[in-house]
């Protein structure tokens, strides 16, 4: 509309707005920005509003202690109080052994079960069941199964392995078993899918050159599998690290299995100290990221190219 007077100016350097508008749009489109990008806008608004903003809000809150005393007072309180600080070690003491066991036990089993055999799909479906049922139900089952009068202790007594029921619930082992029951199938299925991504003809080539099964596994399969193992360990570790319901139900939530998520929960919902709860949540996220970063740095030292298969 205002194009004509602008164009009639002696300088005439800026192009008239009527043409500038499509020009700008054109230039933006060349860099990949146009109206169709609006399709992703709801998702971005959503993630910013419900994930990034709450996270930053929590981070900010953790620097505003309820009881005053400088921005880092809550962090100081957490790290100087052994009852709080030790939750980190208790959580790691559960999560790292459980994740390691799940991954290390899955490797030989998945290695032996690669390829097709009858009943493989059925086995996979059975393994998905505990993942689907989740930790709360597993905890309920473990209370019955591993309890002093449960089937497990009864079997041990009948065989004569023990003289009196062993205590497997309401302590470390109850939580540990619950992490195995849900974590092992998860690790197994992931590693199986990584193994199926390795071209079997590589191993066959090695076999024709006279390599035994251990050499084939050690020098062909394992190096190709290592990145997958690292990823599986990370995911299994994240699952185990956030253990919450089973630590309360089959663990000893006031002592041996007072994991960090219980500390965060108690701060928020029992003491209503939201800054402290946010502090613990941030510490929890940081510890977890440190472990994952360590694993990923270790992984980056290995081969990460194609594995020749479908994966």
């Amino acid at each position: 509309m205002t194009g004509a007077p602008v164009a009639s100016r002696p300088e005439a350097a800026p192009p008239p707005p009527r043409q500038e508008d499509p020009g700008l749009r054109h230039r933006l489109a060349e860099r990949g920005i146009d109206r169709n990008l609006l399709l992703i806008l709801p998702a971005i608004v959503f993630i910013v509003g419900l994930f990034i903003y709450p996270f930053l809000y929590g981070l900010g809150l953790s620097f505003q202690p309820k009881e005053g005393g400088g921005p880092f007072a809550d962090y100081e309180r957490f790290f100087t109080d052994p009852y709080q600080r030790n939750t980190i070690w208790k959580t790691l003491g559960l999560a790292i052994p459980a994740a390691l066991l799940n991954v290390l036990a899955s490797v030989p089993i998945a290695y032996r079960m690669r390829g097709r055999f009858r009943g493989k799909r059925l086995l996979t479906i059975v393994l998905v069941v505990p993942i689907t049922l989740g930790t709360v139900l597993t905890a309920e089952g473990l209370l019955n199964f591993l309890g002093p009068a449960g089937w497990f202790n009864r079997t041990l007594l009948e065989i004569g392995l023990v003289d009196e029921p062993i205590r497997l619930i309401n302590n470390y082992w109850g939580v540990f078993f619950s992490l195995i029951i849900t974590g092992f199938p998860f690790a197994f299925l992931l590693i199986s899918s990584y193994l199926s991504g390795i071209d079997p003809s590589l191993e066959r080539a090695a076999a024709t050159m006279g390599a035994g099964w251990w050499d084939r596994f050690r020098h062909i399969t394992l190096p190709l599998l290592t990145p997958g193992l690292a990823t599986t360990f990370c995911l299994t570790f994240v699952l185990a690290f956030s253990v919450f319901p089973s630590a309360i139900l089959v663990g000893e939530p006031a002592g041996e299995t007072r994991v960090i998520s219980i500390a965060a929960y108690q701060a928020a919902y029992e003491q209503y100290d939201y800054p402290m709860a946010s502090t613990i949540a941030m510490v929890m996220g940081a510890v977890e990221l440190i472990v994952i970063a360590a694993v990923l740095v270790w992984r980056s030292r290995f081969y990460t190219g194609t594995t020749g298969g479908k994966g």
Partner: peptide, 22 residues
């Protein structure tokens, strides 16, 4: 990356700040 994070983080970690905001 920002779409990947909520899947990698354990629910309790972001759940507590999220619940506070909600």
């Amino acid at each position: 990356l920002s779409f990947l994070l909520p899947i990698l983080m354990p629910p309790i970690t972001y759940g507590i700040p999220l619940a506070t905001v909600l």
